[in-house]
Design a protein around this nucleic acid. Structure first.
Lengths: 224, 224
DNA sequence: ACTCTATATTTCAATTACTGGCAACCAGTT
DNA sequence: AACTGGTTGCCAGTAATTGAAATATAGAGT
């Protein structure tokens, strides 16, 4: 970003990646976790214990680590508070269905500052697939997601060759909230040489249909 | 606790409490956060930036911190994976109702190893109230929760003077899952001098009724 | 326009708290 | 018995962390 002399605590980052690794995996043994984050066993153990001590992780009888009460408490709190989280929860089954239908990875993205932020995904089961964009941001003006989030072409799917990476193609559609405003975008992302012609057309229809279904879901939710 | 020479990374713990503070509060400014965790502003800022850099937090335009995409991703992952989390989500409205009805704090507890673990709460609005037991564990054999979780007195509420702390009284009832097994316990906890006689009887009825309602909810959930 | 306050950000040198390698130990498994 | 994976303790070196203080920024009030 900017700062030359901003010492971000190394141990902190390590602890955070450990947490990420364990929670993402569901459960991990010491050895596995250490390998994933590429840390010496002794160090990994120390950090995992820190997490356990603070309740972020718990340890099963067989020694494996998994998510703990503190983290669960925070997870629930964040889900209850953040509309973003409700969105993700509502979207996940649709993402799964979309990937099922198209065979390609699908993503949910929202507007964050002046970028599009990928929030959730269902990954394609195929060997060659689009992967790992959750948490990533892309500019608005050169991408299909950006166009959808800005409402440039309401009601229709965009099918384009992405400008972000040369060999990625996308089919995108906007998702509307209870009040009709655009709150997110769904996209199907895949390799350009596979996602073309007929396949692209299919993906376009699927994503448009799914976006509609998700929008209906969102409209139907009770503002408890 | 135990270990003499286990260096738990101090910065890591600080980062974790910062995360806890921000997520619990929903949104916090730098100053507020620093005060809550009792850290010098500059240090707090550095740690918060670490969290932001890793996507655990995001920063709003006004400078306040709130939960970020990475954390959300993990939260959703953990909720989808862990049945415990689904339980908490399902229970929360019931806890709220229970506290509403009784005027005392209510808790959800589960069996963890050979202890009862308090997972979630709705706190009483009254000045003198039971608070802060979420994340805490208590032994099974000397407590009402323990009895309920062990199924000692199925179908009835327990109303007892707690053995854990002298001036705490409790009304407890067991919650059953889809298959009829006991999966959790609901309790109403309050000061002994207030939660007595008639009030206790009311609480007992309320907690029993609520536990039944929650059990029905759990039975009705779809195993997606 | 100017001051005043409150908050946020950056800098920097001192030091400490952290790392990670190793060796020994333990408990299951094959 | 040998192997695998986990746990503990020790320790020396240093890179990483700290927090006071200086500086910047932003609103509010006059």
């Amino acid at each position: 970003m900017s700062n030359s002399t901003l010492h971000v605590a190394r141990s902190a980052e390590r602890v955070l990646s450990l947490l990420d690794a364990v929670v993402s995996a569901g459960a991990l043994s010491l050895g596995e976790a250490a390998k994933i984050v590429d840390l010496p066993i002794s160090t990994a153990l120390r950090h995992l214990k820190t997490l356990e001590l603070n309740g972020y992780l718990t340890r099963a009888a067989d020694g494996s680590f998994s998510v703990g009460p503190t983290f669960l408490r925070l997870a629930v709190a964040s889900l209850e508070a953040s509309p973003m989280a409700r969105l993700i929860l509502a979207a996940q089954p649709h993402l799964d269905a979309l990937t099922e239908a198209t065979g390609e990875s699908s993503y949910l993205a929202v507007l964050e500052h002046d970028h599009a932020l990928y929030l959730a995904t269902a990954e394609s089961p195929r060997a060659i697939r689009h992967a790992g964009w959750v948490g990533r941001t892309v500019p608005l003006d050169t991408t299909a997601v950006g166009a959808a989030l800005n409402g440039k072409k309401p009601g229709s799917a965009h099918c384009v060759i992405s400008a972000v990476e040369p060999d990625v193609s996308a089919a995108v559609a906007a998702v509307t909230g209870p009040k009709g405003a655009i709150v997110a975008a769904l996209s199907v992302l895949g390799p350009s040489q596979r996602l073309t012609g007929k396949a692209m057309k299919t993906a376009g229809i699927a994503v448009l249909k799914t976006a509609g279904a998700l929008s209906v879901d969102l409209a139907g939710e009770q503002p408890s």
